[in-house]
Design a protein around this nucleic acid. Structure first.
Lengths: 208, 208
DNA sequence: CGGACCGTTGAAACCAGTCAAAGGATGTGG
DNA sequence: CCACATCCTTTGACTGGTTTCAACGGTCCG
């Protein structure tokens, strides 16, 4: 979807675990398509409170939602490679190629729908509902990648990141995961590895 | 911005207070530019909990963020007129006119940035911070319209709608507004009419 | 082997939700 | 123009889900 047009320069970039990809208020140079790994987009309040507005997983795109300056910062959660596309090329080509511009518009619109859905979670769901919804979301989005083995789904983020994505404290996330295991709805054999025992039960808890 | 191209049919539509503009799961036919009035976008959970993902005010656009089917419903808060643009025309013209497609893409991207900022509010701010942020947001967005008279800013939505937008209960919104008045930061002379006494104090409470 | 990070669990405090009641505003129809 | 019903707003008392604080064991990595 990105980088098909000949006049758009792209290159793969690699980021180590924890490495910053871009920072708030920095000039935006590239959009990225995640090839491998995982990325978090974080917003901080002056007093240090943090919120993650998105995770970006393989096959997904980020860094398009920019004015001239970045509104948030992004970091690699694990070793990550992206296909980086120069925004000035994209801007120029999108001004010429309507198919490209319209395709990008629909990508961003889909992103907006997801964001609005997440707002409902943040505004109206209980802690257990949020965690259940999160697991189902990750299951869906990781399904296409190598993160699903027979042992279960391997999550790339720590519980603190989940908490900041879900508007909870990390302790509450831990308690919810413990409760889901006690209810025989999931099992976590290894750290960050989740297997569903009762998917219908999860959907019921999700409440959406 | 919308409807400039000759081949795009548009017409003004009028909606009474409380009238539905479109419903969830309905086929999307039009995008709208608000000419006058105000619109709420609402999402409901199966058990009746409601969340408002956006208010749309004069000069703003909504209904672009759609796949084939609407993901949420929209209603007029007060008597509202919109410029309605046929989505099939838009789709066809955007496939031809790159300037149009790219302009729409940037509109949607701006919408996405606003949505992500609102997530921070929903995920990490206290009730008082949310209400303070809301008042400042409305002040900014209503500044261009006739909603600002010498008596203050006239809000088009009730406190229940504010609550569902901010992820609070309407009682909590009422208590926060009362507290802001007791602190001499705002005054509400008439229902839904707010005047700022201490704008710096509001920004301080907002915490962003 | 040591240290930082991660995850778990318990106890206590607190913020916001819920329930309830009452008064005020708005709009309708007689 | 008034009577009445409905919706909106405010306020109090209580409840409870989540956060906070703290401590501990486990894991990963240098």
């Amino acid at each position: 979807m990105l980088g098909n047009a000949a006049a758009i320069r792209s290159n793969t970039q690699s980021f180590a675990k924890g490495e910053r990809i871009y920072t708030r208020n920095e000039t935006a140079h590239h959009a990225h398509a995640v090839l491998e790994g995982a990325v978090r987009a974080s917003h901080c309040l002056p007093d240090g409170r943090r919120h993650l507005s998105a995770f970006h997983l393989p096959g997904e795109i980020f860094g398009l939602d920019s004015g001239a300056l970045r509104s948030h910062e992004t970091e690699a959660l694990v070793k990550t490679t992206t296909l980086a596309v120069r925004l000035d090329d994209l801007d120029r080509e999108a001004g010429i190629d309507p198919g490209l511009a319209w395709g990008l518009c629909n990508l961003v619109a889909a992103e907006l729908r997801k964001a609005r859905e997440h707002m409902v979670l943040l505004g109206r769901k209980s802690a257990l509902e949020r965690v259940a919804a999160f697991l189902l979301e990750m299951d869906r989005r990781l399904a296409t990648t190598g993160a699903m083995s027979k042992g279960g789904m391997s999550l790339p983020m720590c519980e603190h990141d989940m908490a900041d994505y879900l508007g909870l404290s990390s302790e509450t996330v831990s308690r919810c995961l413990t409760k889901l295991q006690a209810s025989r709805i999931i099992v976590m054999s290894k750290r960050r590895t989740v297997r569903f025992l009762d998917r219908a039960g999860l959907h019921e808890l999700d409440a959406s």
